[in-house]
Simulated assay, not measured.
Amino acid sequence: MENENAQVSRAEYEALRAERDQLLALLRALPDISFVIDTDGLYVRVIGGANETMYIDGKTLEGHTLHEALPAEIADRCLNLVHEAIRTGDLQTVEYPLRVSEVALLPDASRKGSKGEVEQWFEGRVIPLSPFDHPKPVALWVAVNITPRKQLEQYWREAAHTDSLTGVANRLRLFDRAHREVERAHRHGRPFCVLMIDFDHFKRINDHYGHATGDDALRAVTRACGEMLRDNDFMGRTGGEEFAVILPETDLEGARHTANRLLETVRTIQLPNAAPDLHLTISIGCARLQAGEGLDRLMRRADEHLYAAKAAGRDRCCGDCN
């Protein structure tokens, strides 16, 4: 009976080995790269990665550990997943960004230069691999390059929050950012200002020069204004020919300075191909966040100041900063 059990166990073992060998043969033919990693984080074997446009040859990793190859935080996370897969016997998955330059054991020719600094995204699929000719338990880590998918997701996220005509933030994104900045300003007692902007005589531009020229004017103005704003300033289109600029960490003197620069910038814009004789101007309403004030009230006050600027003759700024 013992002999029969031993024979059954041996047969099962050989069947598992055959299954493993078939799996490894299949992995070698796949475009994605795979790693056999033991409980110490040792790269026992590197397999596949036939798609050279998506992967760098990782054979230099064999015989080294995760912590020798990767930044400590990433290595810790990977090793924890290997342990969890081996402990539970279940598939573990994770998405993670990685640059070639971050993998210390890859050849310098691959790590250096602009290509090495490009962030790529991978989906790691980790399963226990048994039996295997190694003294310690191992797991198979299949790294699927999902960079194109991530880039597409990023594109659609940006498209959902970007004004398609001008490329600046749309109303949804602008107000989301403004709400967060208002909360932060109140929490830390910091100054915060808003500029409401409206094109002067925009209907006249559309009627006289055509809507295509009107669109060109909107794009030219938002582009020029965006280039002169600070990195932490934020511009968005609120509708039609109206825009808003939020100015974190900005007092009234700073808001006045920004508004005047915007006015001057727009006055210099020309559309030589569409309307060489067209002179563009904008009107601006400025409001500073007051104690206990919410975003809605702040924007209403800025809008009221904008209409005051229109009534006073346009091409000017009115509001708290005057």
Rank of each mutant, 00 (worst) to 15 (best):
A72E: 11
H83F: 07
N80M: 10
M54E: 13
M54W: 14
M54I: 04
C78T: 08
C78F: 14
R77C: 10
G89C: 13
T93Q: 06
D90S: 13
Y55E: 01
T65W: 12
L70T: 01
L66G: 07
R77M: 12
A75E: 13
E73H: 07
C78Y: 15
D76W: 01
M54L: 12
Y55L: 03
E73A: 15
G58I: 00
E68H: 07
Y55D: 02
T88V: 10
L70W: 02
E68A: 09
T88Q: 15
E68D: 14
C78W: 11
L79Q: 15
E62Q: 08
I86H: 13
A85F: 13
I74V: 15
G58P: 03
A75L: 04
L61C: 00
E62N: 11
L79F: 04
H64P: 04
V82I: 05
G58L: 02
M54S: 11
N80Y: 10
I86A: 07
E84P: 10
L66R: 13
L79G: 06
E84S: 14
Y55I: 01
H67N: 05
G63Q: 09
L79I: 03
E73R: 12
Q92C: 13
E84N: 08
D76E: 06
G58A: 02
H64Y: 04
P71M: 01
H67T: 03
L70Q: 03
H67L: 05
L79V: 03
H83Y: 12
L66Q: 09
D90A: 11
I56W: 00
E84G: 09
T65G: 07
L66W: 05
H67P: 10
A72T: 06
T93M: 09
A69I: 00
I56G: 01
G89V: 11
L66C: 07
R87V: 10
L61M: 01
